[in-house]
């Protein structure tokens, strides 16, 4: 049960971060940690469907975007933010279940390509229907409290970690991993694959929708199509792979490393950081398909060569 231990450690660390705003930390520090926390939630949500159930969803941004869209609209019109976020998550999940059944008729790379197309269709549609920038009302900006966003992000990151911990130790989580390893053999062992894949997608997109709502609450002004951008999908994918796909701690470690590295590289080399991340991703997939988690295991010499890791 190393998962339980990791979960405890991560939750303790998140608990400690609750004291950061009390220490009169500068806003840029809080913003930076906020980004890491948002990234943890987003990476963890992608990890559920791709890492555990083995379904590489390249349209993940669509669900982040839907959550952001509805939460923003409701919140600006006076709905409490938590309610607005839950509504956004419900919309994302409803959409996921609607497209899930046909999308899961596609397997492997075809599922990945199909979901990528879906995300792009949604982004383009939103861009055309809502071309105007969304800015908070002046009164809201005047009363903007970074701490509120920070604590919400902290809570959401904790929720995502708890969700994955519970899932990983559950019957459903085991069934998902069986599907990831070999769907046909899982079916032959009694696992109803479609239902479990839909469950994974629903859980994953609910978290992504919540993360989108948090983004809508945090950002003062942005184009409504921005949260639908493919980089939200690929950020989540990179973080998860860098850390260790299909593990609890992988996406957390990956999110921290990714955000830190991205800030550092973006300051020095501006857009070159994209090239660097691309190269890093290829190197990891080829040399270390289990990411940081696998690297640590190797370094400890406890485990030799691991078996095939899921995509």
């Amino acid at each position: 049960m190393t998962e339980r231990r990791w979960a405890l450690g991560i939750l303790l660390a998140l608990g400690a971060l609750a004291f950061l705003p009390l220490s009169r930390a500068r806003d840029d520090v809080l913003n930076f940690v906020f980004l890491i926390l948002l990234s943890i939630t987003l990476a963890q949500s992608w990890n559920i469907v791709a890492g555990y159930a083995g379904q590489v969803n390249l349209g993940h941004a669509a669900f982040f975007g839907l959550g952001a869209l509805l939460a923003r609209v409701l919140w600006i019109r006076g709905t409490p933010i938590v309610v607005a976020m839950l509504a956004g998550a419900a919309l994302a999940t409803a959409f996921a279940l609607l497209i899930g059944a046909p999308a899961f008729r596609l397997r492997g790379a075809y599922f990945a390509i199909g979901t990528l197309a879906l995300g792009e269709i949604l982004r383009t549609t939103v861009n055309n229907v809502l071309p105007e920038i969304s800015t908070l009302p002046a009164a809201t900006i005047a009363g903007y409290q970074l701490r509120h966003r920070y604590y919400l992000a902290l809570a959401l990151a904790a929720v995502s970690v708890v969700a994955v911990t519970v899932l990983a130790g559950s019957r459903a989580g085991l069934g998902m991993q069986a599907i990831r390893e070999d769907e046909e053999a899982a079916e032959a062992s009694g696992v109803g694959a479609l239902r479990l894949k839909l469950t994974a997608l629903a859980l994953s997109t609910a978290l992504a929708g919540l993360a989108g709502g948090l983004f809508a609450y945090y950002h003062i002004s942005y184009y409504p199509s921005h949260p639908f951008g493919p980089h939200w999908t690929f950020d989540a994918l990179l973080m998860t792979f860098i850390g260790g796909v299909g593990t609890l701690q992988g996406p957390v470690l990956g999110a921290i490393l990714y955000v830190v590295l991205k800030e550092y590289l973006a300051v020095r080399w501006v857009d070159f950081h994209l090239l660097i991340f691309g190269a890093l991703f290829i190197a990891i997939v080829l040399l270390l398909p289990g990411g940081l988690v696998q690297a640590a295991e190797r370094a400890r010499g406890l485990v030799g060569r691991r078996g095939r890791r899921p995509l």
Binding site: L174, Q177, A178, E181, D182, A188, G190, G246, R308
Partner: peptide
């Protein structure tokens, strides 16, 4: 009805115990 495969298909990334647990938790 349960089966084995001509070319073995265990869940490679799962432990032996988890492989069997899948059958136990999802079987009859």
């Amino acid at each position: 009805i349960a089966r084995t495969f001509q070319l073995v298909r265990p869940f490679a990334g799962l432990s032996a115990l988890d492989n069997v647990l899948v059958g136990r938790l999802y079987g009859r």
